[in-house]
Design a protein around this nucleic acid. Structure first.
Length: 427
DNA sequence: TCTGGGGTCCTAGGACCC
DNA sequence: TCTGGGGTCCTAGGACCC
């Protein structure tokens, strides 16, 4: 009997391939003078740090100023985002040479199920070694690979292998491999869970495996407790899936510290709605639930959402709903004078050719007021904007969005890298 | 000049229906 | 009329991932 993507099983044939310090490694590949030196990609904030920089404690997400304090020699470089996409795709091509069962998790990371490739290319460990060799010699980038019986364990193994290493956990060796490792290496255990476990004296995966399931359930909740119990016991039934559907599309923008004036909100949501709606339309999607997140100066954030009767992908509609939901959230927090970030997201997506499913203008379940914008006119405007951009490029139209983007924030190229493909889920 | 951007999943409570 | 139960949808918040 042979398994197809179902774990656990008798052979370690799941690979997790993860490029090391990807953005920084690409910069060092493109410019040999940067090799061996501590570098950071980004401007005001560190988007990625080389291993040389990490040795000083520099981390992604860190403000540039703090990074420079930790490492005075740190060299900041602007990102070559197109190159990241191109080289990431080339690495995925190498992986696809081994098996069609490749699940790309992000630009620089993927799972592979090589159980069906063994008769062609040899044992999984040899396949992993040849992937590393090819990515190194043909593309010029370091990549770490973990090999194990399940996705979760393969992921842990690749983390242990970093940087530029290979770790194979053979079937039967899982418990011994996991026991001494810190719980934070498990997928789903972040700072909050780690702190709670620490409070119970649980620091290693071995200690977690020995803990009682009912105690974990009480400590972390039903789902998290059950998940950790099964992960610590190395039971992970998730198959490698080559394609998966996207559940939501969103965008956010940091504002610095700004009083939330109507004009500022209008400009910000024009920018966000333009990004979100354009992507939805390009992917033949529309969504019913619109969610706004507002972050205040103390980093606390609140969300407000609204579910429409009919799905929308209209730029003007999302702009207005975004502003309206934000104003509702602000009305509940009258003491907050400054907003540092706003986010807009659309979920409960539906798919369809040439979607023209417009919502009632002023909310769910109501009729349009006299004088309210005509939905079909709005749809026509979107079509016109999309058509102009298709011919002349993204920046050809969209005055408000451009004004906002020019005011600061991260480059569009970086945003695009993080976007998920709106590809079809498997049938 | 404190703290980027795009996602997923889970929980809990209330509304509403049968 | 009262009480009880289950299912589904919606909203808000939180943890976590890359």
């Amino acid at each position: 009997m042979y398994h197809r993507g179902m774990g656990p099983r008798d052979q370690a044939a799941i690979l997790h391939a993860d490029l090391d310090a990807f953005y920084a490694s690409v910069e060092q590949l493109l410019d040999p003078r940067l090799r061996g030196r501590p570098i950071a990609v980004g401007g005001g904030v560190v988007l990625a740090a080389s291993y040389e920089a990490r040795a000083y404690g520099v981390r992604g997400g860190m403000p540039a100023r703090q990074a420079r304090e930790l490492c005075p020699r740190l060299r900041f470089v602007a990102g070559h985002f197109r190159e990241y996409q191109r080289l990431g795709d080339r690495v995925m091509d190498v992986l696809h040479d081994v098996t069609p069962l490749v699940e790309r998790v992000s630009i620089d990371e993927a799972f592979l199920d090589v159980a069906g490739s063994v008769h062609l290319f040899g044992p999984p460990a040899a396949i992993a070694a040849s992937i590393r060799e090819r990515v190194r010699t043909e593309i010029g980038l370091p990549i770490s690979v973990g090999v194990a019986t399940t996705k979760h364990l393969a992921k842990v193994a690749s983390q242990v292998a970093k940087p530029d290493g290979l770790v194979v956990v053979e079937a039967g060796e899982e418990d011994a491999f996991l026991a001494p490792l810190p719980v934070g290496l498990l997928w789903g255990v972040g700072p909050a869970t780690r702190a709670r476990l620490d409070g119970r004296g649980i620091r290693t995966i071995g200690e977690l495996a020995a803990a009682s399931p009912s105690m974990l359930k009480g400590l972390l909740g039903r789902a998290a407790g059950a998940k950790l119990t099964s992960l610590a016991a190395n039971v992970d039934p998730r198959p490698v899936r080559s394609r998966r559907g996207v559940g939501s599309v969103g965008a956010q923008a940091a504002l610095g510290r700004r009083p939330p004036t109507p004009e500022a909100l209008r400009l910000a949501f024009a920018f966000l709605a333009d990004r979100v709606a354009t992507r939805l339309r390009a992917g033949q999607r529309a969504g019913r639930t619109v969610t706004v997140r507002v972050r205040f100066a103390d980093m606390r954030s609140v969300t407000r959402s609204l579910t429409l009767r009919a799905p929308t992908a209209n730029t003007a509609t999302l702009t207005e709903l975004g502003v309206g939901l934000t104003q509702a959230a602000l009305a509940d927090h009258p003491d907050e004078r400054e907003v540092t970030l706003v986010a807009l997201s659309v979920s409960r997506l539906v798919r369809g050719e040439g979607i023209q499913l417009e919502l009632p203008f002023d909310g769910p379940g109501r009729d349009r007021r006299p004088g309210a914008p005509d939905p079909s006119a709005r749809w026509a405007l979107d079509r016109a904007v999309d058509a102009v951009r298709e011919r002349f490029g993204r920046d050809a139209v969209g005055v408000a969005a451009l004004r906002f983007a020019a005011a600061g924030g991260v480059p569009d190229g970086f945003r695009e890298l993080a976007e998920c493909d709106l590809a079809d889920p498997p049938p």
